[in-house]
Amino acid sequence: MAVEHRTPEAETPALLVRDVSHAFGDNRALSDVSLEIPRGRFVVLLGLNGAGKSTLFSLITRLYDNVTGEIRIFGADIRRRATAALQRLGVVFQSRTLDLDLTLQQNLFYHCALHGISGADARARTAQALATVGLTDRAEEKVRNLSGGQSRRLEIARSLLHRPSLLLLDEPTVGLDIGSRESVVKIVRSLVEKEGLAVLWATHLFDEVLPTDLVVLLHKGRVLFTGTVPELLAHTEMQTVSDAFRKMTGTAAGTGELAA
């Protein structure tokens, strides 16, 4: 996988991860992980719990540095040009990170400030982001009153405030009912379609994969496959993504979380 270092701006991928390994003590969480997210594509990071998805997210969001390999966001190295990289990155973490006692609007204003956006600009972006996720009429309410799906949508709205070009979502639909899941998926997919965002969507739910998506299969800290869904099916000679996953990882069928 040869990647040019001096590719023109329009050609650089939204996210480039190359040869990244990470260990906590003796516990090796990631081994030589490489993946690439083209601009404007929806990429599913498939893996079971403990596959290393969250570690990978922590490295990309620069919670801790990658010791080996490199991570680039739109060509900006996350270690050397952290500011430029983080400015183009929006994140929805797996755990809830909203202030429950503050209103929706106040939560979004806080995030605007964290990106240096203030005044009328902050108000306009907040209103726009709330409209995108359909929560405009609840702007003045406390987050505590929101349902699980609504707070997830608010977190997506928050991640859009600084107008990132790459969105990371770590298991965004976990714990949501079917209706909420659908609306969250729909919002993010329409962002890819209409706004040209590149998305890395980590999940262990195979029914969230569409045939047009790109798939990165992560298992026990290793990338087993990257490519399109038809390529995955052809490669494994299977009919469904979940069967393909099971064949590649050798995991037993029947675990509830692997529902197709």
Binding site: R39, G40, T83, A84, Q87, R88, D99, L102, Q106, F109, Y110, C112, A113, L114, H115, G116, I117, S118, L160, H162, R163, P164, S165, L191, K194, E195, G196, L197, A198
Partner: peptide, 28 residues
């Protein structure tokens, strides 16, 4: 579109905004 947006550099004003925002949240 959102994705085509190039982020502006962070000036002094942005730093002040960030500081103010964090303090405002703590007090609130």
């Amino acid at each position: 579109r959102i994705a085509d947006n190039a982020p502006p550099p962070l000036g002094v004003h942005a730093y002040v905004t960030c500081l103010y925002g964090i303090v405002w949240r703590e007090v609130l």
